[in-house]
Computed example of a mutant assay.
Amino acid sequence: MAMALRCFRHLHSLLYCSPLAMMRRMPQAAAGCPAPLLEGCRQCVRQVMLTRQLATKKAKGKGQTQAKVNINAALVEDIINLEETNEDMQAVVEALKEDFNRNVSVRTSPGALDHIIVVTKDGKFPLNQLGQISLKSPQLIIVNMTNFPESTAAAMKAIRESGMNLNPEVDGTLIRVPIPKVTREHRESLAKLAKQSTNKSKDALRKVRSKSMNQVKKFKSKVSEDTIWLLEKQIQQMADNAAAEMDKLLAAKTKELLG
């Protein structure tokens, strides 16, 4: 057990070496390391070196992608939380999905108005907390503001400025929201809105990536260059995957809108 532990510590120290240092230190296994364990150390180091070599190869030819980099999160948890970084990036993707479902739809449903934010003198509230929203007919949504009549004008303004191409009309404490006809011009307007939303989401994604990159760079003087390089590649890989997912969402939404 003691010998195995020494071998493990030896291998762990090699993980943070440069490739050249690895080669130099390979034969220097822990004292008294049995042949099977020593060979295991050598095989593990060769595997680490192979992984690094694959990660640095650039894609050649069409349809090929750069080799993926995967780092054991437990080994770098003192530097950065990779799982949290990935969650933050995926949160941006999920926000884009929600935006598409709520604001970039060919047909407007009562649920699409629920989370429109209304600014009142008492604060900001979702529209469905101030008024009762119902579908009067396939072409008309009614917002009943009887419970908060003083917020009717603010609700009207919020609906009109929601970016959903809606022109509400007020009738006492009732707000009538005609559903626009699905014209080619309206579809093109929604497709343009989807593109703008995607670009904003990519800006948010870049901020998450930059924040993570800066966190890693703080440890340049404390860990090896290889470790920093691999972490940066991992973060960039996460960002690329999230951006690719956004592009797929946009392509699907554009096809839905324009055919």
Results as ranks from 00 to 15, higher is better:
L193N: 13
V118I: 07
P27I: 14
T56E: 10
W229Y: 08
A35S: 15
I141C: 03
C7S: 12
E225D: 14
G32I: 08
N214H: 06
A59Q: 10
A35M: 15
K255F: 09
T85E: 12
A73Q: 03
K211M: 05
S18I: 02
A74Q: 06
C7H: 04
R6S: 11
L135T: 04
E245T: 13
R187E: 12
T173R: 02
A91K: 07
Q47V: 09
L140G: 02
L130W: 04
A251H: 15
W229Q: 11
N101S: 12
K192I: 08
R42T: 11
A153Y: 11
I179D: 07
A4W: 13
I142H: 04
V45W: 11
A204G: 06
A59V: 03
E98K: 12
A252P: 15
L127K: 02
H186W: 11
A91F: 08
L127M: 01
L113D: 09
F148Y: 01
V216Y: 05
L257K: 06
E98N: 05
E161I: 14
S134G: 06
L14D: 00
T51H: 13
P138G: 06
V216M: 09
L11F: 14
S105L: 13
V223D: 07
P149R: 05
A30C: 02
L75E: 13
L75H: 04
K207A: 10
R42N: 08
K60V: 05
K222H: 03
E256M: 12
N81M: 02
Q132V: 08
S224A: 01
K222G: 01
E188I: 01
A153K: 12
Q66Y: 04
G259I: 01
K207H: 08
T227G: 08
T254I: 14
M23W: 11
R52P: 01
F125A: 05
Q215M: 12
V143T: 02
P34D: 00
V48W: 04
D78I: 01
K202A: 04
V170G: 08
F125G: 04
Q28G: 10
L50N: 08
L127R: 03
M156G: 07
I159G: 12
M89F: 02
P19A: 13
W229D: 13
V45R: 01
S151V: 07
N241L: 12
T254N: 14
